[in-house]
Write a protein that binds this DNA or RNA. Sequence first.
DNA 1: ACTATACTAAATATTACCTCA
DNA 2: TGTGAGGTAATATTTAGTATA
Length: 309
Amino acid sequence: MGEGDDDELLSLSLSFGRSQKAKNVPASSPHSASLAPPPFLELNLLAAGHARGGPSQNLQLAHRGAVICNLQHLRHSDLSPDYQPLQSVGGIDVNLAPPPPPSYAEDENAASSPNSTVSSISAGKRAEREAAGDNENEGERTSCSRGSDDDDGGGGDGGNGRKKLRLSREQSMVLEEMFKEYSTLNPKQKLALAEQLNLKPRQVEVWFQNRRARTKLKQTEVDCEYLKRYCENLTQENRRLQKEVQELRALKHSPHLYMHLNPPTTLTMCPSCERIATLSTTTSTASPMGPASLQASLQMCQRPLNLPH
DNA sequence: ACTATACTAAATATTACCTCA
DNA sequence: TGTGAGGTAATATTTAGTATA
């Protein structure tokens, strides 16, 4: 670790998820699926010259939740006591229903066709599904609230197949309420909800899929913001320590000052792993830090940092 | 062990709606 | 005021992986 390493900083990249096994939630136990935070985060802290780019440049928010941050073995509980994995982080409640669309229910072209069943010519599995559960479809559009519009003729009626319709406010509200309780539905729940909302079970299913995806995306953004701040703090701390090391080195070369130097208490513990370094305050004020211990300290702080355990 | 089925997440496409020039 | 482009959100489809019977 030469002088050249002095300005090495950290870059953070993060991704998180759960093991594949944990992904599938038995339909019979919807509660177990309820909005648990991803069980782990992956974090990679890489050396990056801060002179070349700001520390915050090393983190980016990926579009659509594809997170670029690369975190390794960082559990949510590791982040900090104030880290909130879900729901209202920084004023954001990721479970909160998005503001209701401005009266979609009254939307005029909302009439329109049964959704799709279109293009997928093959899709045996899906075809089966539709055939099985969704027979009532054809023309029987979604909500009663929009039923009144059905006659405007416009609508995407058959014409060219699929026409997407927004759910009415009431439907959305009910779905959101349900989602708060169960992030996944079992078949019975799905059927019941579909019936209650006058939707096709498939629509309910799709809505929940997309809702889970939105939740995850929001959570990803929240996590990323948090980690960004975390990284900035680490960067600051790193800078501070590097500066201190430089000062100490400078002092080392002026023995007069060096002998009167108090032990650098701030270097006694690695900020990342919190291990006590050789040059803790307990290394006695009488024995000023020698080159070896300094070296050890530097090595400790310059290798890729582990986040706090 | 193999297969069929059902379910899910992720990626992607399509459509609806909003804003602004 | 009307309109078209661009952006965003919502809804739908496809694909691949996994669990289970």
